[in-house]
Structures are given as structure tokens and as C-alpha cells.
Design a protein around this nucleic acid. Structure first.
Length: 516
RNA sequence: GGCCCUAUCGACUAGUUGGUUAGGUCGCAACUCUCUCAAGGUUGAAACACGAGUUCGAAUCUCGUUGGGGCUACCA
């Protein structure tokens, strides 16, 4: 079997959305499992919508996820522009392949599969508005093209003159009339469409003298020897055109197989997931943070504290499952078990809670060493006076209660800074006259405790409290309040062990002094 | 409007050759553990969109309806 070659082909019109990352991921998994190549190609044939920085954003996003292209991007993370052994099909940016497409577009005209059209955008707009007024719609097709300005209707000399004189003309594909195109999709099975419902799509644009997606895409997939096209469902309606193009070029033998992925839907309401949903519902829709030209910041999974492994896992399970009950998969494991047959056909709704759960699962799987490093990266200054062992003990105490590393400080900051104030409702509830007499006795008892370890503290303290009939809850909750300033948190004995005897006694006496 | 795709708990989904108490995960609830809050453990509520048809028997096959999604640009 020949080598599998798949591609991810985003257009640089802004930040890559998580749905795009999922498409890239599925392509990557498919390629890696088959021992094939994953290619990145930049489809920048729309000069008007180009957004600076989006190409770099795509590459950085994929890199963060560990979805690294085999072809199209060099070791420095740049799109390859000149062919070499590893990147034989360069350039991988379509704007730099313009000369290639022109030839193929004209080939289609000469074989009668396409024609020059001279209608201006304004003329076509007018026709659309006119049709709209009559509650119908204008379509450039077998029916209407006979009455429009193109090389099919105009005399040959007129066409010659226009091609020579006029700067603007487009090339349109001549969709055959009343034929059934039989297609196959790896996920959806057989699909049939009658060509009479299709329109004569523009293949070559007059406005920026570049091919449209349809032409560039087919030519590049052919030239780059792509074997499977795994892309979003929004392309399904143009699949018949793409089939027809392969046929018109005589490339049917080399036509890739297609797989159309369902779209990611809004968590609530209607429609597909969009940029705005993230801000509205409080979760990121982009892998990495993005700042647009107006300075507006969109959240990114990376900056919001998601681990890339978790993000990849979340994406993989949005529209695919392994068929068993395992939910946590590394990239390597996903490569092993992924299959297009198990991709779900209907759209998947993103769920923020489940995404957080995934991150929590990955957080729990991290070693203390890794978490200490991540914690330091986030809270460097506040932790600088403490060594890794101390921070490690703190992390181990609270890691089970966190979804994200950025929650660590709130969960265990009291181990690094003595409380500045005491939760008023806790004070109100616990700091009563009887306990005021008990706490100094407890402090005195702790002074002589050796070793000052969680188990010893727990056991002895419990004995003391029970013997004196003080009440476990009352004493322990008060101690927690005095030690950390709050009435909730980890076990008191565990907190004491990490703080150490000296600090514990200091905090208790400070608290007594402060609270009176 | 037209064309195409799609339809199982609130969400993600299993259920690939028709026969299951329709399973799992997130979330939710209760109980439990417990010095608090989490976490953990146990349990529970929760779904085959609807209508025909085929069949002894349909979540599963067929048709229709309805819902959802996409496309309908000289955007991708």
C-alpha cells in the first residue's frame, strides 16, 4: 500500500479555532497510525482577508499540542518556500504557487470544462438582488450562463478582445447538466448529487488574480499526492464540484478519499461554535490567547491553564471514541487506537465542565516535581524563599482539590504567607469564650510534641480533645481558622506538619493577640 | 427558499450481523467518610424526536414528518 499523505490546510484569516485544531489532530492521528506524512499547507488565496500573525499562530498552536507537521514547516517553525528532500512540494503557501494554478485553469478552458466569464461583481450583484425581489435566487449555471457575458456566449473575436484588453475576467467551471455524481465519504458512506443543483463556481478570481479555494485545493492535493482529505463538514456541499474537477483533469485514479468531520456546536442555543461564545460563556475557543488589531484579547487554552495533553484529549473525544470505556489517552495512545470509522457523524457540543475534568485528571497524573515547576512558573516571587521540598509538600496537600495549577495559590497560599486577616464568619462561629481558654492549652501541648508530624499530631491531639471533652470539631476548626485565616481547607494536622512547630505556635499566638 | 449532512439521558457518547434490566463519562442529587471544604466510596434521577411500514420481534432496516447543522461569494 502506498504511503498515506494527509494535509491540514488552514487559511490565515485569524486565530485557529479549536475545531480547526481538532481537524488537524484527526489528520495527524490518521497519518501517524499509517506511518504516513502529515502536511501543513497555507491556503492564502484570499488576499483581502489575510490577517498578519495567523500563520505563526497556527504553527505555534500545533506545536503546543504536539501535532507537528512532517512536511511544510521547517525546524525553525517557518513555512517552507523552496523544495528540498524533506519538503519536496514547496512552496507550501498557495499565494506563492500562483503560476502553477494558472496553467491548470487554462487547461480546463481548453478542454471545454471551464470558460471565461466577463460579468462584473456589480452585474452579478444586481442579478441576485433582482432575483431576490422575485423571491427566487440567481444561480450561475447551465440555465443562466447562456444569457450572460462569457466565452460560451460571446463571439470568439469578442472574447479575444476582452481577454487582451480587459484586466478583469474570471474562469468558471462548466458544471455538466443533469448528471448524478456518485461520491463516497469515509465517515458518511455513499452520497449522490444531481449536477443540475450545482452552480458554475469561479475557479480563477479577477479581483486578486488568484485561484479560488476549489481550484488551488484540488491542484495541490493532486500535486502533493494527498491520499485522504480529512476536513470540516462545511466542505461537503462542494464535494461534487471537487469530484467533477478531478474528472475534468483526468485525475480520477489519483483522487484522494474524503472524510468530512461534523462541526463543533455551541454549548447552548443554536449554531456552530464561534469566537464570541468563549467570551460569552467563559471558556476559550482558541488554543492560544489571541489579541486582535483592536487590542481585544481572546482567551486561549494554554493561557487559561490547560495542559496540552488534556486539550488534545478533549478535542479527540469531541466526535470520536475508542469504543471502550477508556477516556484518558495520550497522543501516542490516540495514534494507536484512532480510526475514522469511529468518528461520530453528528455535531458535537462542547462542554466546559467535562473539559475541566479532563484537565484535573491530567493534573493528578503529573509528578510533584512537574507541578512544583509549574507552580513556580506562575507564582515565582511569592515562592522564591521556599525550597522545592517545601513547595512539593504543599502541592501534594492540595493537588487533589485543583483543576488547574493557577488555583494552587488560593488553595495553599497560607503555607507561604501567614494570614493577614481572619474570615469574619469563621471568627463569629468559632472564636467564642470557652475556646479562648482552650487554645492556649492546646498550644502548650503542641510545644512538647515530638516528632511534629501529621500522624503524631493527629493522634495526640485527638486523644487530648477527647479526654478533655472539648469537642473535635470545635477545636480543630478553630485551629484551622487561627492557622490559615479560613474555616475550610486541608486537614489541620497536615497543615501543621508542613508549617512546622515554630510557625504553628507563632501563628496561634499572633491570632490570639489579633482576635483578642 | 434550494441542495447536502444529521438525530440515544442536560452534555459527550456505547449500542456495527434486528432479541440488552439501553452501558460508560461529565454534570446533578442523596448517602457515606470526616475537624471543615474538597477529593474518595456507594447509590439514584436522567435518553432511543414523532408517525407509518417491514418483522414473531425495531434504538437498530425502509419511508415520511419534525428538529438540528452546513452550504447556497470573484471567502476559505
Amino acid at each position: 500500500m502506498k504511503q498515506r499523505r494527509v494535509r491540514f490546510a488552514p487559511s490565515p484569516t485569524g486565530p485557529l479555532h479549536m475545531g480547526g485544531v481538532r481537524t488537524a489532530l484527526y489528520n495527524y492521528l490518521y497519518a501517524k497510525q499509517a506511518g504516513g506524512k502529515f502536511i501543513l499547507r497555507i491556503e492564502d488565496t484570499d488576499s483581502h482577508r489575510f490577517v498578519p500573525g495567523s500563520e505563526e499562530y497556527v504553527i505555534e498552536s500545533l506545536h503546543w499540542c504536539g501535532i507537528v507537521p512532517d512536511e511544510g514547516v521547517d525546524k525553525d517553525g517557518k513555512i517552507v518556500e523552496t523544495p528540498c528532500a524533506e519538503h519536496p512540494h514547496a512552496p507550501y503557501r498557495q499565494s506563492q504557487r500562483k503560476h502553477i494554478y494558472r496553467k491548470y485553469a487554462e487547461q480546463l478552458v481548453s478542454t471545454g470544462n471551464a470558460y471565461y466569464a466577463f460579468d462584473t461583481p456589480e452585474e452579478l450583484d444586481a442579478l441576485r438582488k433582482e432575483a431576490e425581489a422575485k423571491k427566487s435566487s440567481f444561480t450561475y449555471n447551465y440555465h443562466s450562463r447562456t444569457s450572460l457575458k462569457n466565452s460560451l456566449t460571446l463571439p470568439a473575436e469578442d472574447v479575444e478582445r476582452r481577454l487582451a484588453q480587459e484586466s478583469g475576467w474570471t474562469i468558471r467551471f462548466k458544471i455538466p447538466e443533469n448528471r448524478v455524481v456518485k461520491m463516497n465519504d469515509l465517515i458518511r458512506g455513499d452520497i449522490e448529487v444531481n449536477t443540475s443543483t450545482l452552480d458554475d463556481k469561479v475557479l480563477w478570481k479577477r479581483t486578486d488574480e488568484l485561484p479560488t479555494y476549489h481550484l488551488a485545493n484540488i491542484v495541490d492535493d493532486y500535486l502533493m499526492e494527498i491520499t485522504e482529505v480529512i476536513r470540516g463538514e462545511e466542505w461537503l456541499p462542494s464535494l461534487p464540484l471537487h469530484y467533477l474537477l478531478y474528472e475534468a483533469f483526468g485525475w480520477e485514479e489519483n483522487r484522494p478519499q474524503f472524510a468530512h468531520l461534523s462541526l463543533l456546536l455551541k454549548p447552548d442555543g443554536k449554531g456552530k461554535l464561534s469566537k464570541r461564545d468563549g467570551d460569552r460563556l467563559g471558556f476559550p475557543v482558541f488554543p492560544l490567547q489571541w489579541t486582535n488589531e483592536d487590542g481585544e484579547i481572546s482567551h486561549g487554552y494554554r493561557e487559561d491553564g490547560y495542559f496540552p495533553e488534556a486539550f488534545v484529549n478533549i478535542l479527540a473525544f469531541l466526535g470520536w471514541n475508542p469504543g471502550n470505556e477508556q477516556e484518558i489517552f495520550t497522543l501516542e495512545e490516540l495514534i494507536e487506537v484512532f480510526s475514522l470509522e469511529r468518528v461520530v457523524k453528528s455535531g458535537a457540543r462542547f462542554n466546559h465542565d467535562k473539559a475541566k475534568w479532563y484537565n484535573q485528571e491530567y493534573l493528578r497524573r503529573k509528578s510533584t516535581k512537574e507541578l512544583v515547576k509549574a507552580f513556580r512558573a506562575l507564582e515565582g516571587e511569592r515562592l522564591s524563599a521556599f525550597d522545592d521540598n517545601y513547595i512539593g509538600a504543599a502541592v501534594e496537600l492540595i493537588k487533589e482539590r485543583a483543576y488547574f495549577v493557577h488555583e494552587f495559590w488560593n488553595l495553599c497560599g497560607f503555607l507561604f504567607e501567614a494570614p493577614q486577616e481572619y474570615d469574619p464568619s469563621g471568627v463569629n462561629k468559632f472564636w467564642k469564650d470557652d475556646i479562648k481558654g482552650i487554645i492556649p492549652q492546646v498550644a502548650h501541648f503542641l510545644e512538647n510534641m515530638e516528632p511534629f508530624s501529621s500522624n503524631v499530631i493527629e493522634e495526640n491531639l485527638e486523644n487530648l480533645i477527647i479526654t478533655r471533652s472539648w469537642g473535635m470539631g470545635k477545636v480543630m476548626n478553630t485551629l484551622r481558622l487561627l492557622l490559615v485565616g479560613r474555616s475550610s481547607g486541608p486537614g489541620v494536622a497536615d497543615i501543621m506538619e508542613i508549617l512546622g512547630k515554630k510557625e504553628v505556635l507563632r501563628r496561634i499566638s499572633n491570632a490570639i493577640a489579633r482576635l483578642g
